[in-house]
Write a protein that binds this DNA or RNA. Structure first.
Lengths: 195, 195
DNA sequence: ATGACTTTAGAACGATCGTTCTGTAAATAA
DNA sequence: TTATTTACAGAACGATCGTTCTAAAGTCAT
């Protein structure tokens, strides 16, 4: 069944621009009008493809995170040591920033006006990256590279730091930011205590 | 010269509630109406004390950060080693969270509609805490406790992590969050590599 | 008590918000 | 070709936004 309409493409463009705007300006700070202008389609047409603003964001976040997880699963086997995986992850997070959407998800979830089912879905968002981080740390324990007493806490802090660094993607020079991503892994690995 | 008017008090109440709301819901997500309801004063009255929403936020951020800096300067001498200072700082940041306002400041500064002078002022916000962190690390180097090749980067990452942890103040249980603050210092100090 | 000034509430404004409705040109099916 | 469905634009809606205006009540000096 061939389609000559190219509605899917339009939907993709709207989704892409919306994700960008949400990442930069937050949920409340991004209007449908903004999305309309950035995508080049009318405001009314955004509603042809997406039920409302909240559902649009949830779709973006869920789909983005799913794609993120799949992409990481694809490249992860290329790195053999836990140490390498950790450095690779830091670069991966920087170049495939779904994490701003995580923060925006927190913003939405914190708003009392947000529907409970949406909040529920948003809380599940962080599971994908956290699981990926946790897997690396566990792998490092198994290979004897790492010594970690509190896996969950370590995972959480690592994710928190990487996520926070992503906030600077739109404002900081790429090379400098990349250095900071590397350095956070360095710090996690070795600390600063004199030995 | 005694004053029987107590306008200063209402101004303080409005400022306090506004800071709380901005921290929780962000700049765009907080309306003057919200602030009016939370403080118990009319919407118009908010404008009697503050010129507009933007100026209100800038005042809150600047004043809050100034108070934060003074308070830390007051307690800092109680801790003798750099290590102790670092742990003390993590607790201090958690209990005197001005850092959510830092994030909201980023949100405001990222918005093209924000006036340039406001953006300028907001960029200066992070200087106070960063200087405080940097002082601790430098102190640790001087006492021989720490070995740090990139002071600025280390400072930035430490501030980033603490700031990000503050985001969970309204959603996470206090004791658990406190554990994470402690643990981030642990990690910065020692890392996870097996020795 | 009177008049000046400060502090407050509340109505009102235009702009913009998220959303819905209406109309229409293009694509497909008959 | 005609009828139906799909893909869009754009006007319009009520609600809420940040902000301003009006006016009354409270406080103070005289």
């Amino acid at each position: 069944m061939k389609r000559h309409y190219d509605s899917e493409e339009t939907r993709r463009i709207i989704a892409e621009k919306a994700a960008q705007l949400f990442s930069q300006k937050g949920f409340a700070g991004t209007s449908i009008s903004d999305i309309s202008k950035a995508s080049g389609f009318s405001k009314g047409h955004v509603y042809y493809h997406f039920e409302n603003k909240e559902k649009l964001f949830v779709y973006l976040a869920l789909d983005g995170m799913r794609a993120w997880g799949e992409k990481w699963a694809g490249v992860s086997p290329n790195y053999k040591t836990a140490r390498d995986k950790l450095y690779a992850m830091s670069t991966f997070v920087m170049n495939n920033y779904q994490t701003p959407l995580l923060k925006v998800g927190q913003e939405l979830a914190a708003n009392p006006a947000t529907s409970p089912e949406t909040v529920q879905q948003l809380y599940g968002l962080a599971v994908t990256p956290m699981q990926a981080y946790s897997d690396i740390f566990q792998y490092g324990i198994d290979t004897g590279e790492f010594e970690i007493d509190d896996l969950q806490g370590t995972t959480f802090l690592f994710g928190t730091l990487l996520g926070a660094l992503c906030q600077h993607i739109y404002t900081m020079e790429h090379g400098q930011l990349h250095g900071l991503f590397r350095k956070s892994v360095d710090l996690f690995l070795s600390g600063i205590l004199k030995r």
